[in-house]
Nucleic acid binder design. Structure first.
Lengths: 116, 116
DNA sequence: TTATATGCATTGTCTGCCTAGGTATGCAAG
DNA sequence: CTTGCATACCTAGGCAGACAATGCATATAA
């Protein structure tokens, strides 16, 4: 795996909603996409991923339906609700502000020095 | 307060070590410094801050000593150990990689596109 | 039959932020 | 003197969520 658990916590929901909105719709595929897009840095465990998807569904950000697969067992496909799209936009902005705050404090490279 | 608790979790240790290494040495001062440096975005609660400092001390990243204060009660001053400086460097790099991964996935502004 | 890839799910443990309290000192206002 | 406020530290308990481990189901290949 890549990073510490605690790092993932704050960003997982945003990452999941983003990947799903980009057309990766079921768990197994979502996991692999996250791994690819992060170049192996991020890789949520199954015991993290599936509960997270259930949470997002229960909170109304995702809708799911089952479809058969040509290989292996059936897949549970997710898609964003309207509320999910709004949530993604909000989480994206929240992440941006937060990560810039931290990066500015830590003095890491991609901090935006426009402010202060 | 500023951000969601879950966001703070992943970055708090790094932020604390950084602020202390920059010369803000006791809890109350550390808290205010974080608030100032993040422009109010980050503000750990006392029930978060003090246990976090104790953890870092117990793990050997910080050393502490008590000193009297001209105003109010005595202060517990922290400073980084050699191990603490190494830890800060590691956490800084970990944060940079992680935040870039997430930012790249979310497509937020300050992502570095040099890599892929 | 066994192994491997696909695919979803749950249980139990552990970590750690928060809320909500508490303690102590110094000073100013009433 | 008492009340309030800033300074300054600490802790108990609740709760959310990531992880490891395990299990189940389907398909293909050795």
């Amino acid at each position: 795996m890549g990073t510490r658990p605690d790092l993932l916590r704050g960003a997982l929901d945003a990452v999941l909603l983003e990947v799903i909105s980009a057309g990766k719709t079921y768990g197994y595929e979502i996991a692999r996409e996250i791994e690819v897009r992060s170049a192996g840095q991020l890789l949520p465990q199954e015991g993290t991923l599936y509960p997270a998807l259930h949470r997002l569904e229960k909170r109304g950000y995702l809708k799911a339906d089952w479809r058969d697969s040509p290989e292996g067992r059936a897949r549970k496909h997710y898609r964003l609700t309207a509320e999910g799209r709004r949530k993604l936009a909000a989480l994206r902005q929240e992440w941006e502000q937060f990560s810039q705050s931290v990066s500015r404090i830590l003095g890491t490279a991609h901090a935006a020095w426009e402010g202060i």
